[in-house]
């Protein structure tokens, strides 16, 4: 019901923690390594190890895990759907339930739980970056990491700016989507009734106003940015110049230890 009432992905969670204080470039790269580590986990034990590390990282970031899970919001559905598909399409081992073409088997359940957990951990790992890093910092990291490619003609600064603004507006669009949803429900739309019948029309009733609003925002925002002398990346300074500190060393060490441990854990026989 309450779309937009909860914290969502991309929303920064202000806190005073080791992870928050890390250099965004380091966090950006390390979150890639962290996701790789989750992918490396091929056994339940290894996945459990990866999960322990991620829980530990959330502890270090002082973000309540429940909040982080809540922040995943609709993406949880993605996890559930993936799991469901695995239940239905992976066959083998003992069969628990069979009805027509639907067959739920031991392997299917196992695979669903495993893939579901893995996807869930991946999402948690990803949102650790956005929860602990402001959009401008993510932008800056992205931009700096791309900077060497600017000579090859990649518009690094522009890409960074686009990313930053997209992230800044994400929570706002979720709020607006919530209002549009409630307004259309007030006009008798039943999004819960039958998602297959008239689904397109329901989607239009939500998405068209949202896009219209995005265009409106874009128009004034660009004027407002110009009015504040925005003229691309040339000669811009930054309020917080990025600097690597001991925290980034510690963070790198922790994530590398995680990667090594997860890989090693793959060899522990179940």
């Amino acid at each position: 019901m309450a779309v937009g009432d909860r914290a969502i992905i991309g929303q920064y969670w202000p806190e005073d923690s080791l992870v928050h204080a890390m250099d965004p470039r380091a966090k950006f790269l390390l979150s890639l390594v962290l996701m790789a580590a989750v992918f490396c986990a091929a056994t339940p034990v290894a996945l459990a190890v990866a999960a322990l590390f991620i829980v530990g990282f959330y502890g270090a970031a002082r973000i309540p895990l429940l909040q982080a899970v809540g922040a995943l919001g609709p993406l949880i559905i993605l996890v559930l759907v993936t799991a469901l598909l695995n239940v239905l399409f992976v066959q083998g081992g003992q069969v628990y339930f069979e009805w027509g073409i639907i067959c739920i088997s031991e392997k299917g359940i196992q695979s669903a739980v495993f893939i579901g957990c893995r996807l869930f951990l991946l999402l948690l790992g990803m949102s650790l970056l956005t929860l602990t890093t402001t959009t401008l910092d993510i932008t800056a990291a992205f931009e700096r990491l791309l900077a060497p490619t600017a000579r090859l003609g990649v518009p690094a600064h522009e890409l960074g700016m686009i990313l930053g603004i997209a992230l800044r507006f994400l929570p706002q669009f979720m709020t607006e989507l919530g209002v549009i949803y409630r307004a259309q429900v007030s006009r008798g739309a039943r999004f819960d009734a039958n998602p297959f019948k008239g689904g397109m029309r329901m989607l239009t009733a939500l998405m068209v106003p949202l896009f219209a609003s995005a265009f409106r925002h874009a128009e004034t925002l660009s004027a407002a940015m110009e009015a504040r002398c925005y003229h691309g990346g040339d000669g811009r300074t930054r309020l917080d110049p990025l600097r690597l500190t001991w925290r980034d060393g510690a963070g790198t060490a922790a994530v590398l230890v995680m990667l090594a441990t997860v890989i090693a854990a793959n060899f522990i026989p179940v």
Binding site: R182, Q184, L206
Partner: peptide
């Protein structure tokens, strides 16, 4: 909902 019409703030933002 059919008998109570709710008009939100800036309702033109919901035209689609």
């Amino acid at each position: 909902r059919q008998r109570v019409g709710l008009v939100f703030q800036y309702p033109e933002n919901q035209l689609f």
